[in-house]
Design a protein around this nucleic acid. Structure first.
Lengths: 219, 219
DNA sequence: ATTAAAACCACGTGAATACGTTATTGAAGT
DNA sequence: ACTTCAATAACGTATTCACGTGGTTTTAAT
């Protein structure tokens, strides 16, 4: 029972429906010298209600996804609104892209699988407090895969730099005349550049050119 | 000196210009029982040449970014073309978004900072072979940040479903008349829908509407 | 030096567009 | 019952557009 009050321990909240796993987690946290589990909940609804009324403000929330009632992902933004400074670490068996994607977009700070060793979990808490985003390397792999999907490989239409410049202004919504003004060139020059752009992109309207430019990252 | 030939060791190649760090890495790899460093290079040019002529086919390439001559990021696709099954782990001091982004897009399988412990590096190799993508949690954090930037939070412009339908066709590059034909409605109806869309999106041209629709994922 | 390509400019025409204004219908909400 | 609103439709007009066709100048590569 030494060192209990020597330093301010990191306050952790656990939200997990499985009784055994929850107990294991809580015990593990309390056994460490740096952390203390100030509360544990069986559901998000419970956590949200108690955190509101009791004004709990943990530094870390360990959150399962597969919970009865409100699932962990939906709970993220709500928990964040109650306790804005809390960092949320997902601790779950769900490792499908959809879950990972939504957790990230909702603002989770870390994503571990439940089969992680207790050491890893404790360590993840430290890393999150340190500004990191701990995740299993298999999760990281999926994130990278998704990431790559977001970046379309750009075909090369051989646009000159001037053409790209004009395409950019077109994407900004400027009509030919204003493009001409902005570049201090004649309307007719913009016109002939645009024709060349249409030809290269194989389109026949400004809208199509804009769509192609944005979809294929030409700008 | 036992166990040297008991099992097939994972063949690793190191590309790193700093002599001391390279030696440290190589020694560490060779001291482990699972891996063996079959070659180490001071530059990408060196590695590419020798790997081509000697038909080296390592399972893992540890690759620095900040190399004299060709940098590590440019080298990724070349190394992959020579040795397609090789997984590449970046091991570098560069932790700017640009470098991370490019390494990922070029197909790196892992991304560690040089200050990682040797244990972590050895472990990363195992994780990569296991289909994971090991990375420091600070790197992971940056990846998540970039990831979130790719997913624009969509504002709600209160477009009706019909308006969205028409906006989609506009994005496909169809002129009003063809949109009308496709939906079997009058040109004038499309026209008035588009006016409403422009009004809601606060734009004044088809191009701008297309740009906004694509940038903000309205479709 | 010659060639090629990018960037520049001009005129005209028919088509398409943006927008003011007005109006009918039917469904959803109060 | 009343109102609001999406969806439909129409007419006119000034503006902008796409594209045919004709150029010049500047820059870069051979």
């Amino acid at each position: 029972m030494k060192n209990l009050n020597d330093i301010k321990r990191t306050e952790v909240v656990v939200i997990e429906d499985n009784k055994l796993f929850r107990k294991t987690l809580v015990d593990f946290i309390n056994q460490s010298s740096e952390m203390s589990c100030i509360n544990d909940f069986i559901s998000c609804e419970d956590a949200i209600e108690k955190m509101k009324s009791n004004e709990l403000d943990p530094s870390i929330i360990l959150l399962d996804i597969g919970l009865p009632g409100m699932n962990g992902i939906e709970a993220i933004p709500i928990l964040k609104s109650i306790s804005p400074s809390a960092k949320i670490i997902m601790l779950t068996i769900q490792d499908d892209n959809e879950s990972i994607f939504n957790a990230i977009c909702n603002g989770a700070s870390g994503y571990l699988l439940k089969d992680s060793s207790s050491d890893k979990i404790i360590n993840a808490v430290k890393e999150v407090l340190d500004g990191g985003a701990p995740m299993n390397s298999s999760i990281a792999f999926k994130v990278l895969e998704m990431f790559k999907n977001f970046v379309p490989e750009k075909k090369d239409y051989n646009l000159s730099s001037r053409e790209i410049e004009i395409l950019q202004l077109l994407v900004e919504g400027l009509p030919k005349k204003l493009i001409a003004d902005k570049l201090s060139i004649s309307y007719h020059t913009v016109d002939s550049h645009l024709r060349k752009i249409y030809e290269k992109l194989k389109v026949h309207s400004a809208s199509s050119a804009v769509a192609k430019a944005l979809k294929e990252n030409l700008i």
